[in-house]
Design a protein around this nucleic acid. Sequence first.
DNA 1: CAGCATCCGAACCGATACTG
DNA 2: CAGTATCGGTTCGGATGCTG
Lengths: 123, 123
Amino acid sequence: MAQTGSCDCCGSAATAGAVDSTADLSCYCPVDGVIDAISKKYSLQIVGLLGANGPMRYSELEEVLGATSTSLLSNRLEELAEEELIERRSFDEIPPRVEYSLTPRGRELEGRLQPLLEWAAEE
Amino acid sequence: MAQTGSCDCCGSAATAGAVDSTADLSCYCPVDGVIDAISKKYSLQIVGLLGANGPMRYSELEEVLGATSTSLLSNRLEELAEEELIERRSFDEIPPRVEYSLTPRGRELEGRLQPLLEWAAEE
DNA sequence: CAGCATCCGAACCGATACTG
DNA sequence: CAGTATCGGTTCGGATGCTG
């Protein structure tokens, strides 16, 4: 995953035209990086939590998510921030405080995610 | 992932009540297994392709997806079939023929997936 | 044609130890 | 409090090679 330029499903094979003209929707490969970002552990939960609760601190997320290792949470937050789905805001205080919140883009994602998650959860 | 009974985000931590009452949407952990299934490589594409093109043969999928190894494709198809998102139909012919198509459940998924994918793809 | 079995490397997860 | 650094275990992905 995490492709930057090449595309394994449209680059080589799509030109073969094996299927037909309705194949407009057949390529979901690049998808920017969002899909990559959200298909890792806790990403979905983070987006959902920030959407439901508003800004949250590092330790709050850590607690609610049920103690993942700190490094894992760090990585997820960093990745989501790189995709501009969440925003990191640090206050210059002692003790330090950092808050994470959804960006507008993140809120768009959350909106589109919700129907999917609700459907998957009810079942 | 692939949890069957235990839940790492609501089992232990949600009872801590660190956030507040709006945390209804905070638990996406179990989510049946659908999320697990679709967060693996090619699952999304398979569902999308079958939705757009109708039933497809093994070799068609293989070609359009751009030659993943056969075992990987096999695994994905099997997993999606176990989740009852796709249906496998084999014809008793020589040479053998197998077609895959979306189940009603798979079509529901595809519908909810589409807005998300379109949004992610346009960017 | 449609696949399963196997083996290897890469990515991901989790726990621990340590820093600003 | 909010992280970074490191390391071992597990899962995932890709390449062959071989069957019904």
